[in-house]
């Protein structure tokens, strides 16, 4: 058996199979990493929320720059003026399982950049108050990537009341708010000086320590494929050892190596 396995063609195939298997195993690792990233991002948010340090928003998010993955849940500060007149409400946003709306207000920073900020949460649209737009405020919060816009047929509208928007989507906000605007938004955790009355703040995403099962499945599948590739090689060698592989012209069509149905041999 070993001598059969050491035949050049089987050794060559073993190298190919091992290469394939190691690539598959790597891909499995990569998928597992992606599955964990899910939990990591939420963990990062918790850590960032607890630590006091924040960086100026310009260091993480700039208009005209594509959104960097690393920016997700970064704790940033931004100084500027609210544009209360442009404030929007985002319906269908739960807080502790209670239905409500997000209050989304543009903050115009000193250099004229618009930053979409989720100022807080209200249970009812009527509770949303407009912030004072004259005072200069400093906002601290966590960066979130822009949400995908709702896809609608041409001419179809969201059907929402005036002043409401279904997604915090840069593409949808672009037409409503002054430009330039950053891609992504900030979920506010504090504001100085405070606006009265203060809204209920939206908490950062909490880590549930859960793995993404879609990625975990892929990881397991890749490892299974790696194993199957090696078993395939093993069976080929064993067949050769038993003399099952022989050049059978009748069976040979698109294949150069092996053919002969087992049923006609055993």
């Amino acid at each position: 058996m070993l001598r059969t396995a050491l035949k050049p063609r089987w050794l060559a195939l073993l190298v190919v199979m091992l290469l394939a298997a190691s690539v598959m195993a790597k891909l499995g690792d990569w998928q597992l990493q992606r599955a964990r990233e899910h939990g990591d991002s939420a963990q990062k948010a918790e850590q960032a929320a607890e630590s006091g340090a924040s960086v100026p928003i310009g260091e993480v998010l700039r208009p005209s720059q594509t959104f960097q993955r690393e920016a997700i849940n970064a704790k940033v500060s931004a100084t500027g003026h609210w544009s209360g007149a442009d404030q929007l409400l985002v319906p269908d946003r739960e807080l502790d399982g209670e239905p409500g709306l997000w209050v989304l207000t543009p903050l115009i920073t000193e250099d004229g950049t618009t930053v979409p900020v989720v100022r807080g949460w209200v249970a009812d649209a009527a509770e949303a108050t407009e912030p004072d737009s004259d005072t200069e405020v400093t906002v601290v919060g966590l960066v979130q990537p822009t949400e995908p816009s709702a896809v609608r047929d041409p001419g179809e509208t969201s059907g929402l009341p005036e002043g409401q928007i279904d997604r915090v989507a840069a593409a949808q906000l672009a037409g409503l708010w002054p430009q330039p605007m950053v891609t992504g938004f900030v979920v506010m955790s504090s504001q100085t000086p405070q606006t009265d009355p203060a809204l209920t703040l939206v908490p950062p995403p909490t880590s549930d320590g859960k793995l993404d099962w879609g990625n975990v499945s892929y990881a397991i599948q890749w490892w299974a494929f790696a194993l199957i590739a090696l078993l395939f090689w093993f069976r080929l060698v064993r067949d050769d050892h038993k003399g099952l592989l022989r050049r059978d012209l009748e069976e040979e069509d698109d294949d150069e190596d092996e053919a002969a149905p087992a049923v006609s041999h055993s």
Binding site: Q221, A224, F225, I228, L231, F232, R235, L236, D239, L244, E251, E252, D253, D254, D255, E256, D257, E258, A259, A260, P261, A262, V263
Partner: peptide, 21 residues
Amino acid sequence: YLAYVIVAVDLWMRTRLPAWG
């Protein structure tokens, strides 16, 4: 697809269809 691969390889083990096939 994983099940498909297993079943295809199983069928090959039983029939010895061309390996490249």
